[in-house]
Design a protein around this nucleic acid. Structure first.
Lengths: 246, 246
DNA sequence: CGTGTTAGATTGGTTCTACCAAAATAGAAA
DNA sequence: TTTCTATTTTGGTAGAACCAATCTAACACG
């Protein structure tokens, strides 16, 4: 993935040399590829990636158009990792902030079919509980929140959830190993959240989602020597008291 | 984009026919491509897209591994556009929900350099106010919020803001024409938001951001015959009272 | 028997060339 | 001027050849 970064940097230079503004068309692939020292095919992969991130706008037969001049900056955060765990820390912070809102809206609008999908997802999860491949379980758990996002029916919210709920194995991302007991605990949240959605209790759904995330974050802090962001850290400490009671 | 959907569906069938579970390796690209009736090249693009969305896990020299069995559902929402304005409606709703939180966090952590970037952005905006190219002004306005997102230093939040603040010209997206007076009004928000960031007033930054969005949403409702989502619609009506006073 | 090494096969990644399809453009005809 | 058509430009797909990381299994050694 490092190679792509170099190419995007070169591309940024070219864009800035040409003085391209948002909305302008950038050179055709056939001309651009040699300048970057890669094949057209590889360039296309990169442009597709940039399109997925909304930095560029590809129109068949017409050209590829620049959407924002802050291109380097958009890729930049990918390497500011002073902390090797920055990815997972950022992920949890973003999830802590955004997912409860998503759950709240989802509770208000989710349809029967989507509730059924969530049900299926939970069933798959519960089966996974008895296997020892914790990685799979975690990945199904992410699917649950993806489906939750779809419940809102809002395309942009779905995309946001996708971003937050997608672990990038190709990066050096932490793979969390969960104990059996912990898996059961977390699964209980899934059940409760689904129930809250069914009875349209938006507030409860949001609260449970946040609780789930904080619980998981605390577990990771303890077992993987990861220090969460201040925001999440404080939120965990605040809620710990309530957990004691249960 | 419709073709990709069909192929992903076929792929889902194959996966289910083979009884593949999350974690299993799916057939090699060379074997899979013919079964799907596409070239290996095209298949690779699709697999890359699925990887970006976290549905599969590609390992060079080893194979492509399935991560979740909910594959078809992940592509679905992209085509439910009964309402031609659904894109902009969804966009405003997502922005209304998410951006205030982003502004709040940004106010707490944004650095001097990034504040300077925002300042530059505002200067560019104010210059644009006197030209008649309202489209570009709007695009700079989006840059403002992009930079705001970067102020949080959280990679995932940045990506989220990118999604929400990026208009997709290739889709049939509405291009908003703003009157001179309206542009000045909206620009005033930029100045106020930047000031709030400078003095680290998180609450004020969040409130102003929300206000800005609702103001703009109301304008679009009136001038473009767009009916915003219920959530945004109600929020506008609630806040209208406060606007009267000013 | 166990273990480390190595050669070959497998698999994703890249390059190259040719061609297809949508879009933009220029020029002829009305 | 407007409208239509032919041409050019541009992104999209196809298929073959080759590179590089990985895995596999046979082999040699202790």
């Amino acid at each position: 993935m490092r190679k792509e970064r170099i190419i995007v940097d070169r591309l940024s230079e070219i864009i800035s040399d040409l003085g391209l503004q948002p909305g302008d068309r950038l050179p055709a692939e056939r001309n651009l590829a040699p300048d970057l020292g890669v094949s057209r095919n590889t360039l296309r992969n990169i442009l597709r990636m940039l399109e997925a991130r909304g930095l560029v706008n590809i129109r068949k037969g017409s050209g590829t158009y620049l959407r924002t001049r802050f291109m380097g900056a958009a890729i930049e955060p990918l390497e500011q990792r002073h902390n090797p765990h920055k990815l997972i820390v950022d992920r949890f912070e973003a999830a802590y902030l955004l997912l409860p809102l998503v759950a709240e809206q989802s509770a208000l609008r989710i349809g029967e079919r989507q509730l059924a999908d969530l049900q299926k997802c939970n069933v798959a999860l519960s089966r996974g509980l008895f296997s020892e491949e914790s990685e799979k379980v975690w990945s199904e758990s992410l699917s649950f929140f993806r489906l939750l996002g779809m419940g809102t029916g809002n395309e942009f919210i779905v995309r946001t959830v996708e971003q937050v709920c997608t672990i990038d194995i190709s990066a050096d991302e932490l793979v969390v190993k969960l104990s059996r007991r912990e898996r059961e605990k977390l699964f209980a949240y899934h059940v409760k959240i689904l129930h809250a959605l069914r009875v349209r209790d938006a507030e409860e759904a949001a609260w449970l989602t946040q609780d789930y995330l904080l619980h998981l974050a605390k577990y990771i802090e303890e077992h993987e020597q990861v220090r969460m962001s201040d925001l999440v850290f404080r939120a965990i400490r605040e809620r710990e008291g309530e957990w004691e009671g249960s």
